[in-house]
C-alpha cells in the first residue's frame, strides 16, 4: 500500500534520485521519461489512467 499522511511534494521526490548520486541520475532520467510519456498519453485516458488494462507506466517497465 502506498500511504503518506504527509504531502511529500512531487518535485522533492524526483529530486531525491538526483541527490542519490551517480546511480540516482539514471533513475531520475528514467522516472522523468516515464512521466513525460504518461503525460503525452494523458488526453485519451485522463479520467481512468489508474484503471486502464494497460497502464502507461507498465509499458515503460517493460521497455526499461
Amino acid at each position: 500500500m502506498i500511504f503518506a499522511y504527509l504531502d511529500p511534494g512531487s518535485g522533492s521526490l524526483i529530486l531525491q534520485a538526483v541527490l542519490g548520486g551517480v546511480a540516482g541520475l539514471g533513475v531520475a532520467a528514467k522516472a522523468m521519461r516515464s512521466r513525460w510519456k504518461a503525460r503525452k498519453g494523458e488526453p485519451a485516458t485522463e479520467d481512468s489512467a489508474e484503471e486502464t488494462e494497460q497502464p502507461v507506466p507498465a509499458e515503460e517497465a517493460q521497455e526499461g
Binding site: 502506498i2 511529500p8 512531487s10 521526490l13 524526483i14 531525491q16 534520485a17 539514471g26 533513475v27 531520475a28 528514467k30 522516472a31 522523468m32 516515464s34 512521466r35 504518461a38 507506466p57 515503460e60 517497465a61 526499461g64
Partner: peptide
Amino acid sequence: VRRSLAEAG
C-alpha cells in the same frame, strides 16, 4: 511520481 520512481528502480 512515486510509482514512476519505483518503476525506474
